[in-house]
Simulated scan of single mutants.
Amino acid sequence: MRASHADRERAVDVLKAGFAEGRLQQPEYEQRMGRAYQAQTHAELQMLVADLPQGPVPQAQFAPRPGVPATFMPMPMPMQMPMPVHTNSSATGALICGILMPMTWGATSIPAVILGHKARAEIRRTGERGDGQAIAGIVLGWLGIGGWALFLLVFVLLAATGG
């Protein structure tokens, strides 16, 4: 099996410990270090550290063996949170308010914008799904608000001109 950079570093750590404990002389230590960095397979690394207290640890093994200092063991993988499978309810509410906006004469425009922004903040924090729904609710809500603003502007202009 081909050796990874981490495998080489573990073998180098074993060699360093062997040198620090007086198990290797300086010339032999330097020679083995050079070979460790050039090693291509686990077998080559094992040959370099076979006569030392322990050799490189396979990547799949995470529990320390008796007599193996934790220094030479691979770091445990951090636990990853599973991706949530549900959609943010505020995002769904924003989309529904945006869709209902024409039927309510724009009364649901402001709730669509508020729920959409609230949903996007929650989605960023929790990683839930529904960002597209939240954006759609925001866009539809602002279109409704813009429509009402245009209507009021035209009404005021007509009233001011006496028309």
Rank of each mutant, 00 (worst) to 15 (best):
R35A: 15
Q133H: 02
P58C: 09
A94K: 01
G67Q: 12
T108V: 03
I135L: 05
M77T: 13
I114T: 12
Q46L: 13
Q59G: 11
V12R: 07
A39I: 00
S89F: 04
H117R: 14
G163D: 02
G106E: 10
H117M: 06
R35C: 06
A50E: 15
P64M: 10
W105N: 13
Y29N: 07
L115F: 02
G146T: 04
A36K: 04
Y37Q: 13
E44W: 00
V14L: 12
P27R: 14
R2K: 14
I114Y: 13
R129A: 01
G106R: 03
P69M: 11
L140Q: 07
E122L: 11
F151M: 05
H86R: 11
G144D: 06
G55H: 05
P58Q: 11
T92G: 07
G144S: 07
A50C: 10
A50P: 05
P111T: 08
I99W: 01
A121P: 04
L150V: 04
M101D: 15
L157M: 07
M73N: 13
A17C: 11
Y29L: 07
Q46R: 11
M79K: 14
L48C: 09
A121V: 08
A70I: 15
P69R: 10
K16S: 09
E44P: 13
M1S: 13
V113M: 08
M81K: 07
R120M: 15
F72V: 15
I138M: 11
L15G: 09
A94V: 04
R125Y: 02
L24S: 06
M33D: 05
T104N: 06
M1N: 12
A136E: 02
G137F: 00
G67S: 09
H42V: 04
G130D: 00
R125K: 12
A159R: 12
G106Q: 05
V14Q: 12
P58A: 13
A94Q: 00
V14P: 06
F155N: 07
L45P: 00
D13M: 15
P58T: 09
R35V: 09
